[in-house]
Amino acid sequence: MRTRSRARRVALDYAVRAASTVSALIGIFFLCWILVVVIHRGSAALNWDFFTKLPAPPGAEGGGLANAILGTLIMTAIAGAIGVPIGVLTGVYLSEYGRGGTFASLVRFTVNVMMGLPSIITGLFVYTMLVVTLGHFSGWAGAVSLVFIIMPIVAGTTEDMLRMVPDSMRESALALGAPSWRTTLGIVFRGAKVGLITGVLLAIARATGETAPLLFTSLNSPYWPGNLNHPTGNLTVTIFSYAMSPYPDWQQMAWGASLLITVGVLSMTILTRLALVRKG
């Protein structure tokens, strides 16, 4: 009696182990499938023109997405310039001054909620605030919508990383006579340096790949990004509109843009992973 029951237990155990391994394989399988498709279809579209020329009119052959690449870079950079400082300072507040108290708990909750907020919602918000009121779509609105992506990630990782620095380190600096702000900026930041940069990189990577918020704010444009008060070209919305279009060469360019985005985002992600591993 007992032997049989044990055999069944072992069989169940093997079944579960097999299922687990298969599951992991499934995950890896899909990752590879997607990457292979993106690389295969995207590389066909990448040529010198892609990086240097403006889009051709619908239906016409040739052209490139140089303006879209530039637009994405510009808007992400502006969003970073606004979002990273606010995020870092908020993270510092939560870690150094907000260990208790209701306001700090509220802010912490807000950070978490904003992190999980669908980007299309924040895009909608920026639309009503900056596009409707000003009467036109703009690159500035696009950048602001990306701020909502960057801010919470940076705030969250900053708080987490700063908290990992032991309090004895802070007390040591203070015991030597250092003022509180110097302790934070000099000692605590230094101790958490790698983690902080990682958080920023991850946030930027995330913002680079976002489409939905830009749909409502910067829209898209076939021209060079000059005055940001107008719709601004960018890679992600381009992918969306080109993919949905009936033109095969536009669809192919969408793949090219997809490859570019994927390479950019994944390399930033891998970079942060390497940095964290090296830190130990």
């Binding site: 032991p166 004895s168 030597l176 000692i187 340096k193």
Partner: peptide, 17 residues
Amino acid sequence: ELRRKVGMIFQQPTAFP
């Protein structure tokens, strides 16, 4: 100034980064 005059060593070694 008080803290310059009074040094403190903690239980955990706290070498700064």
